[in-house]
Write a protein that binds this DNA or RNA. Sequence first.
DNA 1: GGCAGAATCATCCGTTCGGGTGATGCGCGC
DNA 2: GCGCGCATCACCCGAACGGATGATTCTGCC
Lengths: 137, 137
Amino acid sequence: MKRTILIYSLAIAAAALVLQWIEYQYTVRVFSTEIYIGLIALLFTSLGVWVGYKLTHRSAAAPFERNAQALEYLGITEREIEVLELLAEGRSNKEIGEELFVSPNTVKTHLAHLYDKLDVSRRTQAIQKARSLNILP
Amino acid sequence: MKRTILIYSLAIAAAALVLQWIEYQYTVRVFSTEIYIGLIALLFTSLGVWVGYKLTHRSAAAPFERNAQALEYLGITEREIEVLELLAEGRSNKEIGEELFVSPNTVKTHLAHLYDKLDVSRRTQAIQKARSLNILP
DNA sequence: GGCAGAATCATCCGTTCGGGTGATGCGCGC
DNA sequence: GCGCGCATCACCCGAACGGATGATTCTGCC
């Protein structure tokens, strides 16, 4: 992150130097100071928009970090998470069982434990709750 | 939106005028052009960051804009959306019926239509698909 | 006036889920 | 070695859900 800021700072400095050079070229020309200032303003405003976009979208586009504290606190196991993820994808118990190479009965057991730990009673509620706890994206 | 852009443009123009005035004050002073340019760059970059932040976060922090095109295209009705929203909150058909003052049978009918339009066969799939279509937040 | 789409409700039937209970095996720690 | 937690599986039962079909009412549109 500090490296990123450094790079952006250097880029801005470089742009400033370029602008300064351009200034020396153009002050002897016919353009008025207003136009000159406007161009600088426009360019650096665009630069700022770009920088701001990069900065804000770096955190917004994060690959989603699972809330480990919640999992720890609720005592949710690895296997239960796998079931939960497939659950959120809209699979049936049978399909989940096939995906994880276990019987639907086992899936039911995992789900029952999940319902217990999440304090819900339906799969749709489990999805909603898990999402609100940042256990699911 | 157009009004917003206009306001920002005017703000930038005003800032440019201010800067120009400052320039006339300072060119007779001791400061070198490098410092002057640097200040302009810094100020307008900050302005750009602010504008960019406002622009991106206006859409990101919006109360969620429903994908009207998808609804139109799929032919999903107002009532079906209401059912869909309660569905995503994990309610049962009976609870949804009570919430909307209709019988569970009616809810079932609406859901059947939704499954048809969303091309799914389970409520969890409906939630997932609706979310991916930006019909649900 | 009639037609199309919507919202409402119902019944039947089969599948899926959820709750409860019990059982087995495996690994880990005291 | 014994207990504990985890994962696995099974059975039962009742509730919830999904699919299909049909009916009624109302509204908007041609």
